[in-house]
Simulated scan of single mutants.
Amino acid sequence: MNLLLVKLLACLVFGVIVVFTLYTLYSFSNKENGFSRDIKRGIVEQIAVKESKHDGYYLAGMCDSGIFIANYYLSEEIQRMNFGLEVVDSFKVHVSDSIKIAWKAVKIFVEYPDVYLVEGIEPSIITCRLPNLDCFSINYSAPKFESAVPVSKSSIVMRKYSTRVNRNILAKKNAFESSTYENESLLSIQGGGNFSIDGMLRYDNGSNELAYIYYYRNEYLCLDTNLNLVRIGKTIDTIRNAQIAIDTIKGENRVTFTKPPKFVNKLSCVSDGYLYINSALKGDNESKSVFLDNSVVDVYSLAEGKYVLSFYLPNYKGHGLRDFKVHNKILTGFFGNYLIEYGLSF
């Protein structure tokens, strides 16, 4: 009798262990990112859709005067649309043959009526004004850079490689000053070397602040236009350290990824004191199918450095979000070759 009781107890304990183990594995697999989103439904209304005939279009600017788009393959052309996505003007930039510019690397920024053509290979900073677009080159004497945003008619902020510290830093160049101001302490390096500080540089002319959003960790920086740190913000996920594996290719003195890095923040924009981030990570309270069928956007207050809410942008004809901007709670984004406009209410 005692032997039977022992066997029954052993079976019971074994059963409890199996159930606990399965529950733990289930919980872990469904909560791998360790955070939840406050998804707000009913705050996004689709207004208009327009299909572009060519690849390579991106959003160059948004303001009260309309939506400006440019094309990586047609670098001299700019189109202005109204807020119904109807083309109302087409412009062609007139650049003198005497100005050196790497056209394939050009990124156009429109801060109406000013237009900036920026590329970091030559490098070239060219400015003009709508509607005539007769350009002149600003003599920045700038070092080569990877990305840059204009913060005034004569100043740009850039991410560039510093040979002094052997990594990327943020710097500011004024056209009327001979030197470049460099801040080597803003971007904090982690495992993965220089790759760990890759990110997106954004400027909000409404709040006159810059934001730098890391690709591979749950962190962003708010800066003034003199590159002073205003605050450090955290995104709602839990990836504190960049998950990057790299190796050096022998004989080429080149570093490469040994496996794809884990993205945290894919796309971003800033507008009217808000930071909008298209996140790469699913929240624990989201189903996998819904997450894959939508592009999720998390909204943060730049002034407070706090999370506000999240919303979904549904994939359109099999395409997810690849570029977007917001102005006065109007969000415009490219999904493949489709440009879609939404109204936001929050």
Rank of each mutant, 00 (worst) to 15 (best):
N2G: 06
L4C: 08
L8R: 15
L9P: 08
L12Q: 12
V19R: 13
V19K: 13
S27G: 03
D38P: 03
I43C: 14
E45L: 11
E51A: 13
S52R: 12
H54D: 09
G56N: 08
Y57N: 14
Y57S: 08
A60G: 13
C63Q: 09
I67C: 06
I67W: 04
I69W: 00
Y73G: 02
I78G: 01
I78T: 02
M81L: 15
G84Q: 13
L85E: 07
K92H: 08
V95W: 03
D97K: 15
K100T: 04
K107M: 14
K107L: 13
Y112K: 04
V118M: 15
V118Q: 09
S124I: 06
I125G: 01
C128T: 12
P131C: 03
F136H: 14
S137D: 02
I138K: 15
Y140L: 14
P143M: 11
S147C: 05
S152F: 05
I156E: 01
M158R: 08
Y161E: 05
S162W: 00
T163R: 11
N166G: 04
F176Y: 15
S178C: 04
S179E: 08
T180Q: 01
T180N: 00
E184S: 09
L186Q: 04
L186V: 00
Q190G: 08
D198V: 05
M200W: 05
M200Y: 03
Y203Q: 02
N205Q: 11
S207M: 13
N208L: 06
L210F: 06
L210R: 01
A211W: 02
A211H: 02
Y214Q: 03
E219F: 03
L221V: 07
L227D: 00
L227M: 07
I236V: 14
R240A: 13
K259L: 12
K259E: 14
K262M: 14
K266Y: 14
S279V: 05
K282A: 11
N294C: 10
N294Y: 09
V296Q: 06
D298E: 15
Y300I: 02
E304R: 15
K306N: 12
S310Y: 02
K325C: 07
K325I: 00
N328C: 08
N328G: 04
N328I: 03
F335M: 15
L339Q: 10
I340F: 09
E341V: 10
Y342I: 13
S345W: 11
